[in-house]
Amino acid sequence: MDLSSEAISPDVADTAPLTRREIADLASEVPDWSIEGGRLCARFACKEFCDAVKFLREVAVFSARENHLPDIGIHEGRFVYVAWYTYAIGGLSRNDFIMAARLSGWLRSRQGADL
């Protein structure tokens, strides 16, 4: 099953964070993302600051639909950073990888739309 089509688990508070092995296995399914400081991260370049703000807002709305929110910010005026991490368990969960896969798929479907 494609990772992006898996359901988000609504309550992961009683689960353990993914192991290093599980993270390594899932990381291969989201090649546009990297592990940095224990978080699943990606950086998206936009043309200018206003485009970055618009993109940040779209990612926020996209994530809110699943009630699994990333850490997100704008750096250097045009780069949007997105980082997934499940605070309730103090580490990465399968939900983080599912959302990264969904966001990547959503962006591929928008190819041609300016970032």
Rank of each mutant, 00 (worst) to 15 (best):
P31V: 01
S5M: 10
M1R: 10
L40F: 02
A101I: 09
G91N: 04
F62V: 10
D25K: 11
E29S: 14
F44I: 15
G90T: 07
L92K: 04
L115S: 04
G91C: 03
A52R: 04
V59I: 13
A83Q: 13
Y87R: 11
N67A: 14
R39D: 07
W106L: 06
E36G: 01
R94H: 10
P17C: 07
A7R: 14
E48D: 14
D32A: 15
S34R: 14
E58Y: 03
M99C: 04
D25Q: 13
A42F: 00
G90I: 08
H75M: 15
K47R: 08
I98R: 03
N95Y: 03
V61R: 09
A83S: 14
E29P: 00
R39K: 13
G77W: 04
L40W: 00
S28Y: 01
C41N: 06
T19P: 12
D71W: 02
H75V: 15
M1S: 10
D96G: 02
D71A: 13
S28T: 13
T15D: 08
R65N: 12
R57K: 07
M1Y: 05
I72D: 02
G37P: 04
H75N: 14
I89V: 13
Y81V: 15
R43M: 05
G91Y: 03
L40H: 00
I23E: 08
R65E: 15
V61M: 09
V80M: 02
E48N: 11
L56I: 09
P31C: 07
V80K: 01
M99T: 05
R43V: 10
R65Q: 13
P17N: 07
R110H: 05
A100M: 07
F44C: 08
D2W: 00
L92E: 06
S63D: 04
E48G: 07
F62W: 03
V53W: 03
A52H: 00
A42S: 11
I72E: 00
D96N: 03
A24P: 00
V82P: 08
A27N: 05
E66L: 06
M99W: 00
R65W: 09
Y87M: 01
D2N: 13
V30I: 06
G112A: 08
R57T: 14
K54S: 13
A45T: 07
M99D: 05
R108C: 10
A64S: 12
S5V: 12
G73A: 12
Q111C: 06
D11A: 01
A101Y: 01
G91P: 02
T15A: 07
S93V: 07
S9E: 12
E36S: 10
I74G: 02
C41S: 10
G73H: 00
I8A: 06
E66N: 09
R78D: 06
A64G: 08
A13C: 02
P31Q: 04
Y87A: 13
E22M: 05
R102T: 15
Y87G: 09
E76A: 15
A83G: 05
A24D: 13
V53F: 03
